[in-house]
Design a protein around this nucleic acid. Structure first.
Lengths: 158, 158
DNA sequence: TATTGTTATACTCTATAACTATA
DNA sequence: TATAGTTATAGAGTATAACAATA
């Protein structure tokens, strides 16, 4: 429950700012996704596991760069997953330095469970919106990513 | 630069999920806000400082609960701000246990600078969108917050 | 007994730098 | 020499539990 306010403080212009609302959305979404998770999978870890699911046998560094993590950051994450027997590291054919990452049967089950949960949350959100609004939100979020990466108008025009 | 992909991995259904795109938006926004910050103020800290700015003299626990942090979490944050002379703790009239938090002149200057930066980012985003789309995004983000808090349709109907 | 601020502690997520084995 | 994985370490950001002072 992050929803600012509840206490009667003056929030000023905070609620008129996309970046602020985005932050609140993200915190709420993270909590909803992690809540009652028997697997204890965070959204970040889910993305990595889903990526491995769709791309079996990739090198760790490829996976890391795809989700924009340092390769050293991925190591303890994968160690943990390996301990839980969700993933397996195998020799990477053609490069003795690298390791090929695969989901185990149990790992695939976790991804499926989490994907279902995510789909449930998405459906719940869709149910609270008028027809087409979910697509609009998705489109505008992608547009936001382009816009925020482009910088402010001042820096952009130079 | 968090933008998934760049490597040619299969992202599956990840980019069709609001929660996933939200996460990416938030990471990018956080990076944009924190970039080149001479003050080193994170979005989270900015919200706290902006709250103090609009509500001078509040108790720490009131501030904490408003931004949904544990009161113990706020302590080192405020200590840091106090060391930088951005805030000041004074006795709270009427309750000897509590402390009233105020922004110093320098603290107000920091908030003003950060507010300007945020406004710049928001303007930049608005400039990359068609007329009215920024308002639509803001409205849908607030709607998302309601929806995600309400839970999935399955749990909701029981 | 309950609440406020605080401390001690711990857990998650992330990064950098340095090491090793291989290329 | 460069790259892949790893280790050691550090720094945010958050929480819980316990404590002193006050209510």
């Amino acid at each position: 429950m992050v929803k600012l306010a509840e206490t009667d403080l003056d929030l000023g212009e905070l609620p008129e700012q996309i970046i602020v609302e985005l932050r609140i959305c993200q915190i709420l979404a993270e909590q909803a996704f992690t809540a009652d998770s028997m697997d204890g999978v965070s959204p970040g870890l889910y993305m990595i596991l889903a990526l491995i699911d769709k791309n079996p046998g990739q090198k760790q560094s490829t996976l890391a760069s795809c989700v924009k993590l340092d390769r050293s950051t991925l190591v303890p994450l994968l160690n943990q997953c390996e301990r839980k027997q969700w993933i397996q590291r195998k020799p990477y054919e053609g490069d003795g330095r690298a390791r090929a990452v695969y989901l185990t049967r149990q790992g695939k089950a976790v991804v499926r469970r989490q994907a279902d949960k995510l789909a449930g949350l998405e459906a719940g959100v869709g149910a609270h919106m008028a027809f087409g609004e979910r697509d609009t939100l998705l489109r505008l979020l992608k547009q936001f990513q382009v816009a925020i990466a482009a910088g402010t108008p001042d820096e952009a025009h130079g």
